[in-house]
Amino acid sequence: MDRALSDYAMRLGDDSLILGQRLSEWCGHAPMLELDLSLANIGLDLVGQATHFLMLAGDADRLAFHRDVLDFKNCLLVEQPNGDFAQTIARQFLFSNWQELQLRELSGSANETLASIAAKAVKEVSYHARFANEWVVRLGDGTDESRARMVQALEWMWRFGDELFDVDAQLDPLIAERIAVDPRELRAEWEARVTKTLAQATLDVPVPRRGARGGRMGHHSEHLGHLLATMQFLPRAYPGTVW
């Protein structure tokens, strides 16, 4: 397996894995039963995608449960804590709208395995985006309190958007070979989609601020370590255990 491809599969897999793990934290705690199920469903979709991408990258279980924080390549957006429900929705809104475009393009990848994983996952993610978009509208155009929380949540999450469109020396050759998606080409459509939903929600597009980045290189916020401690505890404490 060539190193660049395996790294790329890890980026894709880590995005899904970490967000899936985050969403699973809502299980049993969501504002209502129906949402508990919705969030868990989305989380499970993401963990399923992660499994496929990480299998392409290597031994999926080893990569998920026996890697340390510096070796994770997910974007910073997905590791942000759930916060309140609005914050969870803001994170999902920015991510799923991006991920849907990314997977749509990836389904035409020159790498057949990537293409087939993406073709399956894009249907799941278009539902995630729909779910998040509708909640942005509902909260933004809702009560004074839901609106204030949605504004605050977007304000916080917005700074993690830029990183989604970054390319670097590792990605360049894969883009040239049409294996990887060039995320820069997704930006205009992503902004159009996000802006449209914000308009429906009667919300302003947050003021641009200096983007936070570094996740792809392993420079994570402290939150990721705590997430991994929970996620990796069992396989690390009881290596090789099965149920």
Binding site: M32, E34, L37, S38, N41, E134
Partner: peptide
């Protein structure tokens, strides 16, 4: 049945609850 604030939310909750 599901609880929901509007028709779209009801449809989504129904999807997640009864067709998963």
């Amino acid at each position: 049945s599901v609880h929901a604030a509007d028709a779209r939310m009801a449809l989504e909750s129904a999807r997640d609850t009864y067709t998963r």
